[in-house]
């Protein structure tokens, strides 16, 4: 039996990048400490703020919600949860009840915003339309763009001061690499522990950004949290290739993911010099903030022969 470096109990995790073994209790304590440190170091939350947390029902968002509820209790912040139901059969319909049950058990108000009610089509239906129209965009493009937009709008309508997402170290490093591969300076520049306030946008915060995906999963499992662990049926494409590449590198060279993150964080201030500032406008269709005349969500909907059906997302019935 291998023992925890700190307390001598049975080890549950080999944190190879730090050269230590952790038992269940020490891993839980360590994840909670890193979460609190991220909030303090990057000033992610202030006392008395209203925080909306995006919750899918997966391990990351459920862990984030449990960590945030404890933090908010101490700092007198108010927490509400938002789930975007994209309409992915056999996937989101299974995770949604888990998100709802967790929010209920923690006594958090929970709001659900669906693609179907907002856009008149589920993601599954959009993918079928996209295939029929040969748009050559993958499902993650529709899902990512529209989910981000709805989360921001829902958080704004709920009067949130911050929108917390459960992006972990792996998610952030994958996004860094993806933007390198695409030479997308603008998106690269937007990555970081928080996203500064701009008109129409609720500032986003990522308190799990420096916690590896495996540690978030272990935290949820070792705490016995109810989480949804199925794989999204639309997983694939370049995102998956980059994820697999990074996991191979990390397995052979522990600490690589942290090194990529540290390198990016040091480079980020320099990016401001080459990324042009853009004027924030309002989408002519839906009124959401955008850098163009029409926002990306409305543009994608138009390509699919769809349009936005509801301007306001949050009604008393959403909770």
């Amino acid at each position: 039996m291998l023992k925890c470096t700190f307390c001598g109990r049975r080890a549950a995790y080999n944190r190879r990048y730090a050269g230590v073994l952790l038992c269940d209790r020490c891993l839980i304590k360590s994840v909670e400490k890193r979460f609190r440190r991220a909030i303090a170091e990057h000033k992610l939350l202030s006392p008395g703020e209203r925080v909306a947390v995006a919750v899918s029902g997966g391990k990351d968002s459920i862990a984030a919600m449990h960590l945030l509820v404890e933090h908010c209790g101490r700092k007198n912040c108010e927490l509400v949860a938002i789930t975007i139901d994209e309409g992915i059969k056999g996937y989101r319909d299974q995770s949604l009840p888990i998100a709802r049950e967790n929010a209920k058990s923690l006594g958090i108000e929970h709001y659900v915003v669906s693609f179907k009610r907002t856009f008149g089509a589920t993601l599954d239906q959009m993918v079928r339309r996209a295939n029929a129209r040969k748009t050559e965009l993958n499902p993650c493009t529709y899902c990512g763009v529209m989910r981000r937009s709805l989360l921001n709008q829902a958080a704004r309508e709920l009067g949130a001061d911050k929108l917390a997402t459960a992006h972990n170290l792996d998610d952030e490093v994958q996004a860094i690499m993806l933007n390198y591969v695409r030479a997308d300076f603008s998106r690269l520049h937007r990555l970081g522990p928080s996203y500064p306030p701009r008109e129409g946008f609720v500032p986003r915060i990522k308190p799990l950004r420096e916690i590896p995906e495996k540690e978030v999963a272990l935290y949820a499992l070792l705490r016995g949290l109810e989480v949804h662990l199925a794989v999204c049926p639309y997983t694939g494409g370049i995102h998956t290739e980059i994820r697999d590449f990074l996991n191979r590198i990390e397995a052979n060279h522990p600490n690589s993911k942290f090194m990529i993150l540290r390198m990016f964080d040091r480079l980020k201030p320099q990016l401001a010099r080459i990324v042009p500032e853009f004027e924030m406008r309002r989408c002519k269709n839906c009124g959401e903030p955008t850098s163009a005349n029409i926002c990306k969500s409305c543009e994608l909907l138009k390509e699919l022969g769809l349009r936005r059906l509801r301007k306001t997302l949050i009604s008393p019935k959403s909770s």
Partner: peptide
């Protein structure tokens, strides 16, 4: 063996 990578 429990897979933990679930997203896209």
């Amino acid at each position: 063996i429990l897979p933990i990578v679930t997203g896209g």
